[in-house]
Design a protein around this nucleic acid. Structure first.
Lengths: 217, 217
DNA sequence: CGGTTAACTAACATGTTAGTTAGTATGTAC
DNA sequence: GTACATACTAACTAACATGTTAGTTAACCG
């Protein structure tokens, strides 16, 4: 039998680091900080567990870096949005579209935030990340109420939360929802996700509009 | 020094079993099957870890019993609901009210279901639990469209999911949301939860109504 | 009160996980 | 080609997890 040369993969520190961060992000989004297994991260990143400790100090440090990477990605997206642009309904639609479009890429953020709150009492996240989402929505809702185009009985705090629920639940529950669709397709494929976005926007925008608020009761 | 009698607590098998199940439910809702720690359950149930194995075979068996208990609780609530009662808007409101009211008690269900999908590919849950929620909503939405009282461009599959998002997100994200409210109150207190329910119903019902669907665009 | 059963505990056995370390292989500069 | 730095691995250790077992204590019944 011919002597087989075992080809070792090319060495690339930056790539390895990125692969570990990506794998860690997925793993943390599956199980949270405590439940995550470094072994599973190593397998997903195609390296050994020792490499994780070579580049990143500990599981906890890695976790913090994963959070920071997600947050800075997210911060880029929503920052500088003018809540007073166009009509309130248009502003709300544009803002939610921006958030949801980003979340198709940054898909682990909602789950990691959820875990973070449940498991670590939000110890590692910055509250500013939440404010950056909810404050613009609340501001738009308040403006819409003042201008009389949104129903006056909208509670902007509660409604901003429920709106986010309508927008995020689909992404977060993708594992449970897949079997509801024919042939268990990729819930986050562009085509399906676009339908989700349109349907969520429709529900939300009409849900706050005041035009029929009296005669629909 | 006087000899102090250490009072041991009363023995009560049924109570202990219930305490373990309750503690396990909370712990599983925090970390899922794999991440949950039996030690933490024992502390919460005020017993030793050995008691968990005395009454329940393994962590996994305990997990299945916790799921079954939650599911049977939930099944009682929604079963027998007539989706053709009253107007579609009224039927939807009543159904969602029933679901949400129960979920204030059965508060761990959504999170455990979420974990179950993410971590165990839904291996342990019955798909019927999901159907029992989504099918009535979809049926009501379809009826509303046929009767012309709900907007015709509602996709009943997507919209039923987004509706559940608006209704469930508040409960599921309670740990992250608390700090958004003044004085970090109990998000699930009756008063606050009632506001949530009204706001969610308002958003959802008006979000699907067709009355202003053309002139609001 | 004495004997039996069931609820419970402490200590142990076994397996799993995070993190360490000593050494190897690879790319690079001269 | 050789020397060097760094990417990487295998084989560990220590801490922690689940599950077991042998023994203890409380309740109940005659």
């Amino acid at each position: 039998m011919a002597k087989t040369k075992i080809v070792s993969k090319q060495r690339d520190a930056e790539l390895t680091k990125k692969l570990i961060l990506d794998a860690a992000e997925c793993e943390f989004a599956r199980r949270g900080l405590l439940g995550a297994r470094t072994e599973d991260m190593a397998i997903a990143a195609d390296c050994t567990r020792a490499m994780i400790h070579y580049y990143f100090d500990s599981k906890e440090t890695l976790y913090q870096l994963v959070l920071e990477r997600m947050f800075s990605e997210q911060a880029k997206v929503a920052q500088g949005f003018d809540v007073n642009q166009a009509t309130p309904a248009e502003a709300l639609e544009r803002f939610l579209r921006i958030i949801m479009t980003d979340l198709r890429e940054n898909r682990n953020l909602p789950l990691i935030m959820l875990f973070e709150g449940i498991q670590n009492e939000g110890k590692y996240y910055k509250k500013i990340v939440i404010s950056a989402i909810y404050e613009p929505i609340q501001a738009i809702l308040e403006r819409g109420k003042k201008e009389g185009v949104f129903r006056s009985d909208v509670n902007s705090l509660h409604t901003s939360i429920n709106i986010m629920g309508a927008c995020l639940f689909y992404t977060m529950s993708r594992n449970n929802l897949a079997h509801m669709f024919e042939g268990k397709p990729d819930i986050l494929s562009k085509d399906l996700y676009d339908v989700h976005m349109e349907q969520a926007l429709q529900l939300v925008i009409d849900g706050v509009n005041s035009i029929d608020s009296n005669n629909s009761k």
